[in-house]
């Protein structure tokens, strides 16, 4: 029996299917972000018109019939309201038709859990980096089992910062991955570096980088902003690792696709003899498989969900999630 999971928190509509922790399908379609960025209602329209197609695609690639689906899960949050709503509606509709239970999943928990699962490391320290989030977390048992946030950005997420910078530098497309490309042959120019214990801030860095574009080559500023941001995350992660005495690190979330960030964190882990793992990119980008996987854990763990919990929550903090079903 398999669990089908639906992800729709931002520009990706994804459907995954998990059976005994094995990912049978991970289908997705992405809304094409133009220079104007994401207009939530447009993205929601895109999701609505693609929902049926992506679900069918996932079923076909898993090679199973709907009779073999034993539960449905969907992303409850955090994310953009109109987008989340489409995934929730699709999940509820499908579950009613199949007469199976529905599980609401926290997006960040999805990223962390699937990476943890693929890594084979037990209770690792997780570095979760995406557009809106940048956090260092680990599972703790008190006062209930949850991911404790050891450190995090005090302002904006690292992904959004790089996107904003890319827009200011007139890079096309205005994404972090374009910054990485431009940065390849750059050299370092001074940037503000702000780590407060295990927390960090990015707005000062962003403002400074945009200002430096006036008098420095784009490749140098791109190299420096990226290098500084990733260094700050790695240093905060190092501190968390040493304080918690955890010797396994996993990297997850959209920005985890960055080769340079992977390299820095791997080097940091190795310098302490720790394990390091990052999942293949299809799991770092938003995807349905992680939602299906967590849905399966909840289903098998006997998690009871009240009807009133089957909502969406635009600001759904990862440390609010009770992991006792795990």
């Amino acid at each position: 029996m398999a669990v089908l999971g639906i992800e729709s928190s931002a520009h990706t509509f994804g459907v995954g299917i998990s059976e005994n922790g094995k990912i049978l399908a991970n289908s997705k379609r992405m809304y094409n972000i133009t220079a104007s960025g994401m207009i939530p209602s447009r993205v929601a329209e895109f999701h609505a018109s693609n929902a049926k197609g992506v679900i069918e695609e996932a079923m076909a690639s898993a090679g199973i019939g709907f009779s073999e689906i034993s539960a449905i899960s969907y992303t409850k949050g955090p994310g953009l309201g109109p987008c989340l709503r489409i995934g929730q509606l699709a999940a509820l509709t499908l579950a009613e038709r199949l007469n199976v239970p529905v599980y609401p999943v926290n997006h960040a928990v999805g990223h962390i859990k699937i990476t943890e699962h693929l890594s084979g490391i037990k209770d690792p320290l997780a570095v979760y980096v995406s557009g809106g989030n940048s956090q260092i977390l680990g599972a703790v048992d008190k006062p209930f089992r949850h991911y404790n946030v050891y450190g995090e950005t005090l302002d904006i997420g690292v992904g959004n910062m790089l996107d904003n910078y890319a827009r200011a530098a007139k890079l096309n497309p205005a994404w972090g991955s374009t910054v990485a490309k431009v940065a390849e042959n750059g050299s370092y120019v001074g940037m503000p570096y702000t780590v407060k214990g295990m927390d960090f801030t990015f707005t000062g860095l962003l403002t400074n980088a945009i200002k430096m574009l006036e008098s420095n080559p784009v490749k140098d500023v791109s190299y420096s902003i990226q290098e500084t941001a990733f260094s700050m995350i790695a240093e905060a992660a190092e501190r968390a690792m040493l304080l918690t005495r955890n010797n396994g690190i996993i990297l997850c979330g959209g920005v985890a696709q960055s080769k340079r960030l992977q390299e820095i964190l791997r080097a940091m882990s190795l310098s302490h003899g720790s394990k390091f793992f990052v999942a293949p990119n299809e799991y770092n980008a938003d995807n349905g498989a992680m939602i299906a996987y967590v849905g399966e854990l909840m289903h098998k763990g006997g998690k009871r969900v009240k009807e009133s919990e089957l909502t969406i929550m635009q600001r759904y903090r990862v440390d609010e999630v009770d992991l006792s079903w795990h």
Binding site: Y188, S231, A234, E235, E238, S271
Partner: peptide
Amino acid sequence: PKPYLIKEIEEPL
């Protein structure tokens, strides 16, 4: 020394 950071960042830091 922080061997995972570039010299330009880690030495001044």
